[in-house]
Design a protein around this nucleic acid. Structure first.
Lengths: 215, 215
DNA sequence: CCAAAAGTGTTGGCTGTACACCCATGT
DNA sequence: ACATGGGTGTACAGCCAACACTTTTGG
């Protein structure tokens, strides 16, 4: 068996990184500094280096762009023919807490948050990728605790509800939301209250599990 | 920009092909004729050839092994490090009607149906791949019409129920099953009845849509 | 005392599940 | 006549959606 007769492909890893900030759902985009699509916005990504696993590559990319790790990160879909060449692109998606993310600062490929639903033109078919990820997110919100990855360790039920509303792009009834979430048994009270409010203090909660759990 | 500095990988496509036959859920396996894992069972697959899209490759593989096309075929997951080398393996899964499948006959790599839940030892980590596909199938059965791809064009409600039972590995209540399926509105009566039975003739139904629809 | 957000229950409709008997056909 | 699978309805429970007012705090 020779090594030359096995066809190979350039394999790239993309990451769709969502966060919720001031009641808006956002995605991390970078500005391309190279052709093709120079100066266009696109999703962060890069070629799969020799010896890397896909998850390694996605984890590293997420860390490089936002400085966070230990967050929800899951494979999304694998595209062929997304880029200009006949590369294979493995997309991942992640949820990060806007508060703990520290965007990379570099001269080129500057990352920035962009409101979903108000996206600029994106390179390649990256808009489809974001739409697909958004669908997955909405779905997963309904039957898992992924929201743990969008909020700080301790949070109020109102914050949690705002995150849900931003993602689903709807308003939710407060009483029904609280009842539903609390009866799931995935939260616990910390005992403390959020003091910084200029109004009535709110109970703080945290997720029992800081890793994905399906209901 | 040189072409040599971009690292590339061998990309393979695998297909998990399910069918239901005589009340059992089965998967298509082939016997390997080459090292490594010579003579072990494994999922059908092959390297992604130059110019092929992933879906092309999966479609062709499915056709080669079973002779069917126009069936449910969907991407499952992309693994790295599944094989012995550092290849990237894109898994697909499919549902075929056992009656219309005609297994390939060749001297090597003979394909054969194997009962899920009674699998032989599989090469690489193919057992995990089958398990993952099975989970997806069970799930999708609950909120889509994918079963259209497991049955002939016209079928009785009992056949449909048997398919569901085989997949979910449970028994279902006949009245509840019929009510649930019929109120979904995804079936229509053909007007004909199944005459070949040696008992009471059964109404024949068909799926309104022969392509995936989510509820 | 006013503004702002937190917190809290009840009702009605719908959906899913449990459950048993008669019917049509072939032998 | 009997064996085999086809076909049918009801009642209860759990879940989800609609809906409004009181409380606590800071200014």
């Amino acid at each position: 068996m020779t090594t030359d007769d096995t066809p190979t492909r350039a394999v790239a890893v993309l990451v769709v990184i969502f966060t919720v900030e001031s009641g808006k759902l956002r995605v991390l985009l970078i500005r391309r500094s190279a052709e093709p699509f120079k100066d266009a916005w696109s999703l962060p990504g890069g070629l799969l280096q020799e010896g890397d696993s896909l998850l390694d590559a996605a984890t590293r990319r997420l860390d490089v762009e936002t400085g966070v790790s230990d967050v929800f990160l899951e494979q999304l879909y694998t595209f062929s023919g997304l880029g200009d060449r006949d590369s294979v692109d493995v997309a991942y998606w992640a949820l990060v807490d806007g508060g703990s993310a520290r965007l990379a600062r570099r001269d080129e490929w500057q990352p920035a948050w962009s409101n979903v639903g108000d996206l600029p033109d994106l390179a390649f078919r990256n808009r489809d990728v974001v739409e697909y990820a958004l669908g997955r997110l909405k779905n997963k919100l309904a039957y898992s605790n992924v929201a743990y990855s969008l909020l700080p360790r301790e949070f109020t039920l109102s914050q949690l509800q705002q995150a849900y509303e931003a993602i689903l792009a709807t308003t939710l009834d407060k009483r029904n939301f609280r009842k539903r979430i609390l009866t799931l048994g995935i939260l616990e009270e910390t005992g403390a209250t959020a003091g910084e409010g200029r109004h009535r203090p709110a109970k703080l909660y945290r997720f029992r599990e800081r890793r994905p759990v399906m209901f």
